[in-house]
Amino acid sequence: MQITKKLIVAGAGVVALVAGGGAAYAATAAAPAAAPKITAEQAIDIAHKAVPGAWVSELDFDRRGTGPEVWELELTKGTDKHEVDVDAASGKVAKHETERNDDNDD
């Protein structure tokens, strides 16, 4: 009789774990994030208008938890590196910073 009680308790524990895991999976996989209105190609075009003649060396999509979703681009023109953020919903340049490379390591 002791063995039967242990099996029932163990079985109930397994059922609870499986049900909880399924609910956790469903919560994380329920809705895929919507695609941005501005595509990567459009973001590159917008960044090229901000920095004409530059080439894109890096492109990332950032889904920020608190702020807007942005395309983060790094462009190179000559010895200058430009970091441009393009708002993925509106297409506006959200940030544009320039780092000048003067070949001094000071």
Rank of each mutant, 00 (worst) to 15 (best):
M1T: 14
M1H: 08
Q2S: 10
I3G: 05
K6R: 15
K6F: 03
L7W: 02
L7R: 12
I8W: 03
V9W: 01
A10H: 01
G11E: 01
G11D: 14
G11V: 07
A12R: 00
G13K: 07
G13D: 12
G13H: 01
V14R: 01
V14D: 03
V14C: 06
V14Y: 06
V14K: 00
V15I: 15
L17E: 09
L17I: 14
V18M: 08
A19F: 00
G20D: 02
G20Q: 01
G21E: 11
G21W: 00
G22Q: 09
A23F: 00
Y25C: 07
A26P: 00
A26T: 10
A27P: 00
A27I: 07
A27C: 05
T28Q: 14
T28E: 10
T28L: 12
A29W: 02
A30R: 11
P32Q: 08
A33T: 12
A33F: 04
A34I: 04
A35H: 08
A35E: 14
A35G: 01
P36F: 15
K37P: 08
K37S: 05
I38F: 05
E41R: 08
Q42V: 00
Q42C: 09
Q42I: 09
A43M: 05
A43I: 12
A43Q: 05
D45R: 07
D45N: 11
D45K: 14
I46N: 04
I46M: 06
A47D: 05
H48G: 08
K49G: 13
K49N: 10
A50P: 04
V51I: 14
V51H: 06
V51S: 13
P52N: 03
G53N: 09
G53S: 05
A54E: 11
E58M: 09
L59T: 13
D60Q: 08
F61G: 02
F61E: 06
F61Y: 15
D62I: 11
R63G: 08
T66S: 05
T66N: 02
T66W: 08
G67Q: 15
P68E: 03
E69L: 01
V70D: 11
V70F: 12
W71S: 04
W71D: 00
W71R: 00
E72V: 07
E72M: 01
L73V: 00
E74Q: 10
L75R: 00
K77A: 04
G78Q: 04
G78D: 05
T79N: 09
D80M: 02
D80T: 02
D80L: 02
K81D: 09
H82L: 01
E83Y: 13
D85V: 04
D85E: 14
V86S: 02
V86L: 05
A88Q: 06
A89G: 07
V93K: 09
A94T: 12
K95L: 15
K95Q: 11
H96N: 12
E97H: 07
E97I: 14
E99M: 05
R100A: 13
D102E: 12
N104Q: 08
D106H: 04
